[in-house]
Write a protein that binds this DNA or RNA. Sequence first.
DNA 1: AAGGTGACTAACA
DNA 2: ATGTTAGCCACCT
Length: 104
Amino acid sequence: MSFKEQVISQIKQIPQGKVATYGQIAALAGSPRAALMVGRILHSSSESEQLPWQRVINSKGRVSIVNLSYPAELQAQILREEGVVVEKRMDSYYIDLNRFLWRI
DNA sequence: AAGGTGACTAACA
DNA sequence: ATGTTAGCCACCT
């Protein structure tokens, strides 16, 4: 099973109403420092697979999606529907990791 | 096969 | 406290 597949499988396991960081997912997939890869994998496979990409954020609790395939606005909206509190500051969206970070 | 790259992170200035 | 720099490592070409 490739790192990529492990990442995808882990992301699929993030429960609704929770979020995870790239670093965390990378660690779960077996390579704690391949956080960048996680983002890359998401970017490339989020459309083909049905991944909750909106639940994956960076270490500061900030949405990294900003101006790519989807507007950060959409991510924030989806998360709020799941019960996650998303704070909007300037142009970015922040999430309270202490409350919503997914823990195993 | 080798090198460039990225939806990152943590450490510094 | 914000901005920059340098590691990072598996994927893609």
